[in-house]
Nucleic acid binder design. Structure first.
Lengths: 220, 220
DNA sequence: CCTACCGATCGGTAGG
DNA sequence: CCTACCGATCGGTAGG
């Protein structure tokens, strides 16, 4: 019969994941050693291997738990049944809040995915695509004309560029800071959508595909 | 008297840098071995160390040559003496073209700067700040009201987010593809600027600093 | 003495 | 859960 897990097992796991995310974000996954992770967590290396079977599992948990929170945001906002623009504004705000609370995890997700074992990497990239599809669908509902022009996916990715890139330059600071950026991003995006539609179809006239699938992939 | 260098020396250096940039972009700097770089270039490892004194120098050259081209773009556009909006539009277009021609180098610059020796890293980050300052100055000239509200630097960084993030999702394809994205980014940015000014000062009213220096750093 | 390399191996350290 | 290790591979350099 399997023995019960110690009550602090899950808590210890989460603490280790947080410390590992910090180290991976600072030094990169490949150049962080399991010795460093163990030392930072105040546990022996064999103890570390008690909580996670190998270095890849550490990386996979960091990425997947962060991604699970982002997916939950999408599902919660969709459940409210808002119109497209307020729904997208709320998602932007919730994403920025989530990133602010998990800056290390976010950096690991964006920079270290390439080090994941291929099955884990596939699952993580599919999770990212789920989130992008949700945003893109809301943009398409709001502006069917842009959808018809094949511009929704590229524009959605530009929106992700703004918010994903924020945490490479934002000084880690007070929460109000991050909160203030969300409406600015949203205003820039919605204000800019009106200007895009006039010139873009001209620029793309030589392209044959309407859905833009040959122009951009939503994965890497 | 120093002997002349073999005529192919510089050509060989550039070929090695291009191959190293590809490997670093694909696998990350830390997990690419000098053996792999040498093998990919078809030279022995001692020969590789003949062209570059160590692994860090390889990384430093990749980053600094790419950055030098971006700085050259800034200086060339500034020399034209255009009005702010056409100047920024042209810079966006030239940046996108430059990124399209140097996708590996661009990815190395954005993801592997943390592995540079500290003196090299300092110089590279100063080069990045030069480019950001040039863009931000043009935005400020165009919209002094946004400058007074302390929003120019954050907005400039959102613009960089759009174009820097493009090459994490864009499928490597035909040149026309990248060229078509530049005016879309510019339209989204300029179209959005008008919408930002109305609501942002409200969102930031509790902040005390006018220049936004406590809110965002333009380095990492 | 120099350069432009080669085959072989150095001292240390990685993940496990 | 510890000390003590392993197979392998790391960045860099020896002699010729």
């Amino acid at each position: 019969m399997a023995r019960r897990r110690a009550p602090g097992f899950e808590i210890q796991r989460e603490q280790i994941l947080a410390e590992a995310a910090l180290l991976f974000a600072q030094r990169g996954y490949a150049s962080t050693s399991m010795n460093e992770v163990a030392e930072r967590c105040g546990v022996s290396k064999p103890a570390l291997y008690h909580y996670f079977k190998d270095k890849n599992e550490l990386l996979a948990f960091i990425c997947e738990e962060h991604l699970a929170r982002l997916k939950a945001v999408v599902l919660e906002v969709e459940a409210l049944g808002l119109d497209p623009e307020p729904a997208i504004r709320l998602m932007i705000r919730r994403f920025v809040e989530e990133y602010a609370d998990a800056q290390n995890e976010h950096r690991v997700l964006t920079e270290d995915v390439k080090f994941l074992a291929s099955e884990d990497r596939t699952r993580v990239l599919e999770g990212e695509r789920f989130i992008v599809r949700a945003l893109a669908a809301a943009v398409a509902r709001m502006r069917p004309d842009l959808d018809a022009a094949g511009l929704v996916k590229p524009l959605t990715m530009l929106l992700f560029g703004m918010i994903n890139w924020m945490f490479t330059w934002f000084k880690s600071g007070r929460r109000v800071t991050h909160a203030a950026m969300a409406p600015i991003v949203a205003d820039l995006f919605f204000g800019g959508l009106g200007a895009v539609v006039e010139t873009a179809p001209l620029a793309l006239e030589s392209e044959g595909d309407k859905d833009g699938s040959s122009r951009c992939g939503l994965d890497r």
